[in-house]
Amino acid sequence: MNTSARAKNRNFRWGLLFFLAPVCLWLFLLIVLPHIDLLIMSFRAENDMGDMVWSLSNYRNFFEEPVYWLTYVRTAIYSVLVTFLTFCITLPLAFYITKVVCPRYQGFLTILLLMPFWVSELVRVYGWMILLRESGVVNHFLLKIGLLNQPIEMLYRDTTMVLGLVYTSMLFMVVPLISVLESLDDSLIEAAHDLGANTWSILFKIIIPHATPGIVSGSIVVFMLTLGNYLTPNLMGGKNSLWFTEQIYNQFIASFNWNQGSAFGFLLLIISSLIVWLGLTLSRQKLGKVVQ
């Protein structure tokens, strides 16, 4: 009895190990190991003699060069803004799909919403560029109806870049919001209405508190993807709207300064962790609960 129980226990442990091994290997070899290497690299720099030594100069450069830390702060603020805008746009959308529209069309509308995401991000961004560039569709149309006298450049502005980023990240907000709003009992909304609540207090007292786990998990994903996005800021923001990922890219590829690049990479990691932690603390949510 005792031995069989022990054997069973041992079997279980081997099984667990067997299934966990690929995950552990993947985490260790592809995430932990390269990061350790990058971390080491970020603390190494050439000294005057041209030898590699331990140094904080990579981090010092970041603080001494305004363009670096300005881009850094800009990227963080814009990411928060994009996350907030995405939320503001998708909440009514998700509410409409789950609560207002006839249940027959729910699936259809959700698929309609997901459809653009079957196309690669690159193609979608080029789609926006075709619409917005100086000789693009929108300019052509506005000229035709006489609203403009001469075409204006709509690309390469902060607004355009934010628009592109919101568009790119919508999917990752709308899916958790739909699933969390589906679990909201309609009678709670009706009860609140019956007890004297108007639309705004229903939104802030019932809907948003109920949807908080979905909002937080969607926001985390959107925020991280936006912060680490390279394609959209690069193509739609151009030279006028620098994104911190572009600085990292420049260091690695253009300047071939891997040490400076890794330092930037770690700084980005720090700010993203910091803001996610701040968001979780402010909304009083636990990460483990939110990602479920």
Binding site: S187, L188, H193, I206, H210
Partner: peptide
């Protein structure tokens, strides 16, 4: 007159207490 301005209150079948 919308429900929030009527002098009546409804107790729902599932009670609809706010869990939050």
């Amino acid at each position: 007159i919308p429900p929030n301005r009527r002098p009546v209150n409804l107790i729902f079948q599932n009670l609809a207490l706010f869990p939050m």
